[in-house]
Simulated assay, not measured.
Amino acid sequence: MELSSSAFSHGGEMPRRCTCEGEDLAPPLRWSAVPPNAASLALIVDDPDAPDPAKPQRTWVHWVVVDIPPSAGGLDGEGRSLPAGSRDGTNDWKRAGYGGPCPPIGRHRYFFKLYALDIALPGMSQPTKAELEQAMKGHVLAEAVLMGTYQKQG
């Protein structure tokens, strides 16, 4: 699978509008080459550099999305709704939906990880990353990763 965004390139800087210093809008995402036998897609966005890239102590979860239809082709982002049937999970701010980069110090990396699954996960209302990873075990057909960076400007 391939995962990309029109807002930033792999390894490039994420735009301010997608961060806490801007409108905190999810970036648009597009994917291709989803396995034909995929029943659903799942997305995890996290930052392994929290709180300080020089001394990371934890991975901060910014977004979890489950039951994305394989035919969706992407997420529009920019504050638009998710494809029908998709649901937001719970991020590390203990809320559903996207929470953009807001690094307290230094330049952080943000990993957008898309998984093609051989099952749907309708019983999971607002899963955390850990709950989703547990449910996905043994069901991942393919994975794609897009990484963006951000450092506070203000």
Score class of each variant (00 low, 15 high):
residue 110 Y to M: 08
residue 91 N to C: 09
residue 104 P to K: 01
residue 102 C to P: 07
residue 96 A to N: 06
residue 104 P to H: 00
residue 102 C to G: 09
residue 107 R to P: 02
residue 104 P to D: 02
residue 102 C to K: 05
residue 109 R to N: 11
residue 111 F to R: 14
residue 119 I to F: 06
residue 98 Y to T: 09
residue 108 H to W: 05
residue 101 P to H: 08
residue 108 H to A: 02
residue 120 A to N: 14
residue 114 L to A: 04
residue 116 A to Y: 00
residue 103 P to L: 02
residue 119 I to R: 15
residue 101 P to L: 10
residue 116 A to D: 09
residue 114 L to E: 00
residue 112 F to L: 10
residue 112 F to V: 07
residue 107 R to L: 00
residue 121 L to W: 12
residue 92 D to E: 12
residue 92 D to W: 11
residue 96 A to I: 09
residue 94 K to D: 13
residue 108 H to F: 05
residue 88 D to R: 03
residue 98 Y to K: 07
residue 105 I to M: 01
residue 115 Y to G: 04
residue 119 I to Y: 06
residue 122 P to F: 15
residue 122 P to V: 15
residue 94 K to W: 08
residue 105 I to K: 02
residue 114 L to Q: 00
residue 123 G to C: 13
residue 115 Y to D: 06
residue 98 Y to D: 03
residue 104 P to V: 07
residue 96 A to T: 11
residue 90 T to A: 08
residue 113 K to T: 10
residue 123 G to H: 15
residue 113 K to W: 05
residue 116 A to L: 01
residue 117 L to A: 11
residue 120 A to Q: 15
residue 115 Y to K: 04
residue 100 G to F: 07
residue 100 G to V: 06
residue 106 G to L: 02
residue 93 W to G: 13
residue 116 A to S: 05
residue 122 P to L: 14
residue 108 H to M: 04
residue 119 I to H: 13
residue 99 G to A: 13
residue 113 K to R: 13
residue 122 P to N: 15
residue 109 R to C: 11
residue 107 R to K: 10
residue 105 I to S: 02
residue 105 I to A: 05
residue 89 G to F: 02
residue 117 L to M: 08
residue 110 Y to F: 14
residue 110 Y to C: 09
residue 92 D to P: 11
residue 111 F to G: 01
residue 108 H to N: 07
residue 110 Y to V: 08
residue 110 Y to K: 07
residue 112 F to M: 08
residue 88 D to N: 14
residue 103 P to W: 00
residue 89 G to S: 06
residue 102 C to I: 06
residue 110 Y to S: 10
residue 100 G to P: 08
residue 116 A to W: 07
residue 106 G to E: 00
residue 121 L to C: 10
residue 88 D to G: 03
residue 100 G to S: 04
residue 104 P to E: 03
residue 100 G to K: 03
residue 123 G to W: 15
residue 113 K to Y: 01
residue 123 G to M: 15
residue 111 F to L: 12
residue 122 P to C: 15
residue 108 H to I: 03
residue 118 D to Q: 06
residue 88 D to Y: 14
residue 94 K to L: 14
residue 106 G to T: 02
residue 110 Y to G: 10
residue 101 P to Q: 11
residue 120 A to K: 15
residue 98 Y to W: 10
residue 120 A to I: 13
residue 93 W to L: 14
residue 109 R to F: 07
residue 89 G to W: 01
residue 108 H to G: 05
residue 105 I to T: 00
residue 107 R to E: 05
residue 91 N to R: 09
residue 106 G to K: 05
residue 97 G to Q: 02
residue 93 W to N: 14
residue 104 P to T: 06
residue 107 R to F: 02
residue 94 K to P: 04
residue 112 F to T: 05
residue 111 F to Y: 12
residue 96 A to C: 12
residue 101 P to F: 11
residue 99 G to T: 10
residue 105 I to N: 01
residue 119 I to G: 05
